[in-house]
């Protein structure tokens, strides 16, 4: 059993468990939406004093910060207790494409050291700009993958479908058009 858990989990196990988590949160009277935490953090840091968007009862969202804390713990447990060294078995086409972009680590690590290990000016900019886009974009769109792609689509909401189409327009644009310019 432990050996099975230590293997990479197939997509159907991952997807099923995420749905299960979303449904349990609903039964607990909560709505699954991870990016709301960024707004809560801004509010908790006192952003409500200067910007009305952050002036609300953020303490009612404390449960979500607890969920966030669990996510960090889960990452640790997944990586150190439930894995030897997990390397995603990505397709050979992906390996080829990423090698051409200069990612020699593809097929040997979970996350590319080319972005996350050396703190070059380029990498700090990538992480900062990527983070800014995620924070700004999720709040503008009113949700991220959990709030729109999972919760919103599960309750058949048209706005969530539009948002998910946007996610893909942005992702495709980044990977197909901008990556060749960023990574040479």
């Amino acid at each position: 059993m432990m050996e099975l858990i230590a293997q990479p989990w197939p997509w159907y196990v991952g997807g099923a468990l995420v749905a299960f988590i979303m449904l349990l949160l609903i039964v607990l009277g909560k709505t699954f939406g991870f990016s709301s935490n960024f707004r809560t953090i801004c509010a908790a840091l006192g952003a409500g004093k200067s910007v009305s968007f952050f002036k609300y009862d953020w303490k009612a969202q404390k449960w979500n910060l607890l969920f966030l804390a669990g996510t960090v713990i889960g990452g640790y447990i997944g990586a150190y207790w439930l894995s030897d060294v997990q390397v995603p078995d990505v397709s050979s086409a992906t390996i080829q494409d990423l090698r051409n972009l200069g990612f020699r680590s593809v097929g040997t690590t979970y996350a590319p050291p080319e972005i996350f290990d050396s703190l070059s000016v380029r990498n700090v900019l990538i992480l900062l700009v990527g983070g800014l886009l995620v924070g700004f974009g999720t709040r503008y769109a009113g949700g991220c993958t959990s709030g729109h792609a999972i919760t919103g689509l599960s309750s058949l909401q048209l706005p969530s479908l539009i948002a998910v189409i946007g996610f893909f327009i942005g992702g495709l644009l980044m990977v197909h058009v901008l990556f060749p310019l960023i990574f040479q």
Partner: peptide
Amino acid sequence: YLIGGTLFGMGWALIGACPGPMF
């Protein structure tokens, strides 16, 4: 939804993580 979603999608692809996986 369209503009916000597109901006988020660009960030998601760039850092390879949506908000949950960042943590």
